[in-house]
Computed example of a mutant assay.
Amino acid sequence: MTTPIDEHLLDLAHQGGIRVEYSRIRDGRDGESHVDQNLIRLRPGMNARLHRCVLAHELGHHALGHTPTRFGPVHAKQERAAEEWGALRLISIADYRHVEEIHAGHLGAMAVDLGVMRSTLEAFQCVLLRLGDTVYVRPKMGAGMFTHREEIA
């Protein structure tokens, strides 16, 4: 069963001219991006939450224009950036706030309710900065430099 967010991700791929194929992937990975070929390969048979998160992650590689590298620090930075890009497309601050409150911060329960993998939720948390009664999304240095600000009680 596809959800509106799944349809949105596939629409993003279509709009970007990115083909999504399902086939066995070397090294047993769940997905891979070929930015130069406008292609994403996904492992068939993944459960819905994993499929959604892997597709969002791989779309992140395309959106960010990543060139594959085996240089460890650059590869790690690309993977982190793609995971955060995907997380920001899958989780809204309002939904996060709601599930954090009802599950008292329990990551596993929060991830299930949000329909994402725990690793995606953790990536989302990495782009948040909580200062006092305010949460900032993607904060940067300087006044007013953030994607979103949410007041919390």
Rank of each mutant, 00 (worst) to 15 (best):
P44L: 04
R149Y: 10
A81D: 11
H14K: 15
E58F: 10
E150V: 15
Y22E: 01
R97N: 13
R19M: 00
V127Y: 03
H51P: 02
M1D: 14
T147P: 09
L50W: 06
D95P: 07
M46D: 04
R97I: 10
H106E: 14
L55C: 08
Y96S: 09
E21P: 06
I93Y: 01
R49W: 01
W85M: 06
L90C: 02
V35F: 03
D133F: 11
L131C: 14
E83K: 03
A143C: 12
V35Q: 02
T134C: 08
G31H: 00
G115D: 04
R41V: 13
L10N: 07
G45R: 05
H148L: 15
R29S: 13
P139E: 03
A48M: 03
R89Q: 11
I25R: 00
N38K: 14
A123P: 03
T3L: 12
M1T: 12
A109R: 15
G28M: 06
N47I: 08
R70C: 12
G72V: 05
C53D: 05
L64D: 01
M145S: 15
E79G: 00
V35D: 01
V20T: 00
R89M: 09
I5P: 04
D133Q: 15
D113K: 02
I93D: 08
T3Y: 09
R70D: 11
S119D: 13
E122N: 04
H66A: 03
L90Y: 04
R19Q: 01
E151I: 15
H34S: 11
R52S: 00
L10V: 06
G28K: 02
A13Q: 06
H62A: 01
L114K: 04
G108M: 09
G17H: 02
A153Q: 12
A81T: 01
I40M: 01
H8N: 14
G72F: 07
R19F: 01
L12V: 04
M145G: 10
H103F: 10
L12I: 04
G144Y: 11
G28W: 02
A123H: 02
M141D: 15
N47R: 07
V116C: 05
G28R: 02
P139H: 02
G16R: 08
V54L: 06
A48F: 05
G132P: 10
E21W: 07
R80D: 06
S92Y: 04
K140L: 14
I25D: 01
A87T: 03
H14L: 07
L128Q: 07
L131T: 14
G132V: 00
V112L: 10
P139V: 07
P4L: 08
I152L: 15
R89L: 13
H148R: 14
G31V: 05
L121P: 01
T69H: 02
H62P: 03
R19W: 02
E58M: 08
Y136N: 05
H61E: 01
I152Y: 05
D30I: 05
Q37F: 09
A94D: 03
Y136S: 08
I40E: 03
V99G: 07
V74A: 14
A56V: 04
T3N: 03
E101D: 15
D11Y: 08
H75Y: 11
